[in-house]
Design a protein around this nucleic acid. Structure first.
Lengths: 224, 224
DNA sequence: GTCTATAGACAGATAGAC
DNA sequence: GTCTATCTGTCTATAGAC
């Protein structure tokens, strides 16, 4: 998906295969550019990001950025496409045969972990949604919907089986998503609320416990 | 606070009081500018917002915007200062003498209502935090901390009195803040998750019920 | 594949006529 | 208090030497 956005070099050996070395340089430089782009876009948004800053951060001259990507928008789209792939990972903890407590706790912890280790990516994604999600493709959104639907069906199954109290699974996932997201995306606020300068792994641990205890305490059926 | 940021007109009657009419025009135009600024800033962020667009949206020529505010940053700071005032309102529901269920439910509903009716403001605030909160003054942040501290102390009191189970009040408020905020700031995602094109008051009602039932179910002491 | 130089559009901000 | 014209700088993007 990301590949469609990448500019082709204007001049290339006709019909011949590219040198493996060329490919490696391409891959490396594209990675450098995307990594730098995530940082800058997440801090300044799409309109506020100058390509020159992406170039500087990636150690390449500005013109080279244009050699690898045909426009600023192409870089942005490639970044978005890349980070959508991280969306599902945490949700794999939600499996029908799993015990609800274990599954939901696994999801919350995985989500917190992801947000902590990929803070810039996470903020960029949040930024994109706040601005109205205009660069998310229909396919991206459909994918996220499908993944959500599957998780919702599993929770509904647990409710039907009497393992969980009656709960609106869609709103439940919104709660879990937003709570976990908060610690990474809104770190300055979270740090203020917790009376510290910066969040440490201990705060993430406390967050996980509070979310899991509170939510599970509210929906776990008494018999479970 | 906002006033400190506003440019003084270069030429003014020396020593004389200003005409009431002058004042009215000033107030009206400043209001128009701030209102337009909230909309544009929330969509494009600080760096991505052109003053020309604020001018257009407020119906004034660009030079007039500079007549009332000395810089783009001054407008942004004035907007931030204004919306900080909305921060406390919902928290007034958390009073020590109130019943915990009533108080927390009141808070959640007020917060959802605010986010729904002031979506642009809310998104602008979220955007500012995501970018690292560099335009929030120390005083603004201290104010938010003080208000949070008060609410935390009240919840701790409820826990001590046996009205609530043991819970980390600071993380609890983060949960409530993030969950309620989500429906306004990340509306496209929430709508996708709820299988609709746009959120209506019914969805906000469902959200309130899910949040309150889940969280209160998790922390209300059995005897309460 | 790398990089300097620059075109062309548009930004924030100001001067000064009205 | 209003507004046109303009200065100055920076932006995206490209041309073309190496």
């Amino acid at each position: 998906m990301a590949m469609a956005e990448v500019a082709e070099p204007a001049e290339r050996k006709p019909r011949g295969r590219r040198e493996p070395n060329e490919e490696r340089i391409r891959a490396r430089n594209q990675r450098l550019i995307l990594k730098a782009a995530i940082e800058v876009f997440s801090k300044k948004g799409f309109d506020g990001t100058p390509i020159s800053e992406i170039a500087e951060k990636s150690g390449l001259p500005k013109a080279n950025v244009y050699y690898y990507f045909e426009s600023k928008e192409a870089i942005y789209r490639a970044v978005i496409a890349h980070l959508i792939q991280g969306w599902d990972d945490a949700l794999t903890h939600i499996r029908p045969e799993a015990d609800p407590r274990t599954a939901l706790e696994g999801y919350v912890r995985a989500k917190l972990e992801y947000t902590r280790k990929n803070a810039s990516e996470s903020r960029l994604f949040a930024s994109e949604i706040i601005r109205g999600a205009e660069y998310l493709t229909r396919a991206d959104r459909q994918h996220m919907k499908d993944v959500t639907d599957k998780a919702v069906a599993i929770v509904d199954g647990w409710v039907a089986a009497g393992q969980l109290k009656q709960v609106n699974a869609r709103h439940l996932f919104i709660m879990l998503w937003s709570a976990t997201q908060f610690y990474g995306d809104f770190e300055p606020l979270a740090a203020d609320a917790l009376l510290v300068k910066r969040l440490t792994s201990r705060h993430y641990e406390d967050a996980a416990r509070t979310i899991v205890d509170t939510v599970l305490g509210g929906i776990l059926a008494a018999s479970a």
